[in-house]
Amino acid sequence: MCVAIPGLIKSIDGSLAQVEIGGITQTANLQLCPQAKVGDYVIVHTGYAINTLDQQEAKETLELFEAIARVAQEEN
């Protein structure tokens, strides 16, 4: 039920955005996420964007995983 998928905002018209999800363009309502801009990734649940995704946080998380993987490799 709570499935939500990341999508890239291509254009915005009023409270509706065209969002690219896995190569397919869909309409997403931005009423719950009014701060979203063209070029942002939003997380879309049943046709509504529920938050923007923070690229900086995502990068830092992946860097942390890289560091953890390096430690594991060195130990092997």
Binding site: L53, A58, L62, F65, E66, I68, A69, V71, A72
Partner: peptide, 19 residues
């Protein structure tokens, strides 16, 4: 950043499992 495939990486998963 696609916010999906990056978080399915096998090598990074192995690192986390080892930890």
């Amino acid at each position: 950043m696609k916010y999906a495939s990056e978080f399915r990486d096998n090598r990074l998963a192995r690192g986390l499992i080892a930890k």
